[in-house]
Amino acid sequence: MIIDAGSMDSRSLNAAIKGLKHNGSIELNNVNGQRYICVGVSGRKVEINGTPGNDLAAFSSDVDINVNGNAQDGVANTLRSGRIVIHGSVGDVLGYSMQGGNVFVRDNVGYRAGIHMKEYLDNKPVIVIGGNAGDFMGEYMAGGTILLLNLDGNHIGNFIGTGIHAGSIFIRGDFNPYQLGKGVVMVEPDASDLEKLEVYVREFCSRFNLDPDRVMEQGFTKLMPQSSRPYGKLYS
């Protein structure tokens, strides 16, 4: 099923997606900043050609979305499960409060990626970013995993992981400790960490035609919360 989104506004485009009777895959062409694409949609495979607007796949579950282009702010906001692949860059607050699912971004992400990500039982969200990230990545992180591959070796944002109290962030390559937020500790990834992150690196590379072995050649640093109760001693 192909939908030409060129002349549609956000609401009618989403109504068209939600109104589809069949469960097959959808291709959206000429997407040009329409917001809320696939918001609250469950169990859909969607190919997006163009630039989806803010809140792509917010509150969705079990989606399989491939974006051929960049995406804007709020991608995967409160996503429950599924997979989102972006062949380009995304704007701010990627994966706000994501509860599960995987997001792969080929290039860069804006400010506050992966903040408030949380995990519960089998729901473990994962974000893999090929390029660099803006400030406050992983702020208030309460679970899940962020992999920042920084393949171009650019400067990454500051205040990484401020207020993190669960979950982990892996950063490939060099950065300065001053770039970390308060309450974050740096450790060497152990064998099980490396095993886990290699699985995601391989998947990332297979989606974007990169050589996983070359990506894995450079070392990773693991960032973890100092405490699961960062503000436990604040109160009298």
Binding site: G74, K118, E119, Y120, N123, A166, S228, P230
Partner: peptide, 16 residues
């Protein structure tokens, strides 16, 4: 939907 015993932090702003 968070682990047992973990702090539940809702910061003053919604950061979006």
């Amino acid at each position: 939907m968070i682990p047992v015993g973990s702090d539940a932090l809702s910061p003053s702003p919604h950061h979006d």
